[in-house]
Simulated assay, not measured.
Amino acid sequence: MLADVIEHLACPVCRGDLVLSGGTARCANGHGFDVARQGYVSLRTGSAPAGTADTPAMVEARARFLGAGHFAPVAERLREVAGTAGVVLDAGAGTGHYLAAALGPDAVGIALDISKHALKRAARAHPRIGAVVADVWRPLPVKDGRAGVLLNVFAPRNGPEFARVLAPGGTLAVVTPTSRHLEPLVGELGLLSVGEDKERRLGETLAGRFAEAGHMIEEYEIMLGHEDVEAAVGMGPSAWHTDPVARKIEIARLPGVLAVNVSCRISMFRKIT
């Protein structure tokens, strides 16, 4: 709930403390932000469109696919990384699936995402998650040094802001796909592929603020039917670049059950002080 994390949040206008009062998050300078009936609050400023925020259809596909346990080993690795951290922040949290899995018995979670549709689910993914609409590319509505662990799973990265909100000695855990992720679906359906230089670009976005403390490759095979394949495609960036009708036709041509590779790199970083 927002009440569990409000002390760690900052007014996006003046950076002042926020308190909850009558269904509104307010600061001492009079800036107020209404809490939606689904339990999330928007601390996103500006009037620019949300760009590639997850749509309701993408959120439904993501919830269906993750709920089936296809990425459960990845979530388990993140639980191990989070350990006993008191505050876990997920930048680009989506439905809150990974954040909920990572929280220890005494931890609270802050789910940041630009999609209000995703945060409707994140707000109820765990009783100690506070869901906040925010743009990862802009200053985050979180106070300095509050997160013991910061998760970034298949999401954009803002190196300067991640360093600001991460506590001294904290861990940034970044999950990125390898070039083998979701094969043979990528080739069979013409999905977006992972660039050869993805690891180099990851290092560049965090250079000067973070040092890699280790990494692991989580790779295994899952068996997917047509509905699972449709959810896998519909929840990711390829959903923006494929026609739903054409996608159904292409998926119908696949074998009834297909062996698909899950391959992710989980990189741990420490903030450079």
Results as ranks from 00 to 15, higher is better:
53 A>C: 14
74 V>A: 08
75 A>Y: 13
62 R>P: 11
82 A>M: 07
71 F>Q: 13
91 A>T: 11
94 G>A: 03
62 R>C: 13
69 G>T: 10
53 A>V: 09
76 E>V: 14
91 A>Y: 10
65 F>N: 12
85 A>P: 10
53 A>R: 12
59 V>W: 01
74 V>E: 12
60 E>T: 15
80 E>N: 08
72 A>Q: 14
84 T>W: 01
94 G>N: 02
63 A>D: 15
67 G>V: 08
67 G>L: 05
91 A>S: 14
72 A>C: 06
67 G>F: 08
85 A>V: 10
64 R>M: 13
56 P>Y: 04
86 G>V: 05
81 V>A: 00
57 A>C: 07
78 L>Y: 01
85 A>K: 07
83 G>D: 03
63 A>F: 04
75 A>K: 12
55 T>Y: 13
72 A>L: 14
93 A>D: 09
92 G>S: 07
63 A>G: 11
92 G>E: 03
62 R>Q: 10
74 V>Q: 10
65 F>C: 13
57 A>W: 06
63 A>M: 09
66 L>M: 09
54 D>W: 07
61 A>L: 08
77 R>K: 13
69 G>D: 07
57 A>Y: 06
64 R>Q: 14
77 R>A: 15
95 T>H: 04
95 T>L: 03
53 A>Q: 11
69 G>N: 11
90 D>N: 06
95 T>P: 03
79 R>D: 03
76 E>C: 06
90 D>Q: 06
91 A>R: 06
76 E>Y: 04
71 F>K: 09
64 R>S: 15
75 A>G: 15
68 A>M: 04
71 F>H: 15
53 A>I: 07
70 H>F: 15
60 E>H: 14
91 A>N: 06
93 A>N: 07
70 H>D: 01
56 P>K: 07
66 L>N: 06
78 L>M: 06
82 A>T: 08
94 G>H: 03
59 V>Y: 00
87 V>I: 03
88 V>K: 09
53 A>F: 10
62 R>Y: 10
78 L>D: 04
71 F>M: 14
73 P>W: 06
77 R>L: 05
82 A>N: 03
72 A>M: 07
94 G>L: 02
82 A>R: 03
65 F>A: 11
68 A>K: 13
79 R>G: 14
94 G>E: 02
93 A>Y: 08
71 F>R: 14
76 E>Q: 15
66 L>P: 04
86 G>Y: 03
69 G>K: 06
64 R>Y: 11
72 A>P: 08
61 A>I: 06
80 E>I: 14
95 T>Q: 02
72 A>H: 12
82 A>H: 03
67 G>P: 12
59 V>G: 01
54 D>Q: 09
92 G>K: 02
57 A>E: 15
93 A>E: 10
76 E>D: 15
89 L>E: 09
87 V>F: 00
81 V>C: 00
72 A>V: 05
82 A>Q: 04
70 H>L: 05
86 G>S: 11
60 E>F: 09
59 V>E: 02
72 A>I: 04
79 R>W: 00
79 R>E: 09
59 V>I: 02
88 V>W: 11
66 L>E: 13
81 V>N: 00
56 P>V: 05
85 A>E: 09
69 G>I: 08
82 A>P: 04
90 D>C: 07
80 E>P: 02
83 G>S: 02
76 E>R: 15
89 L>M: 13
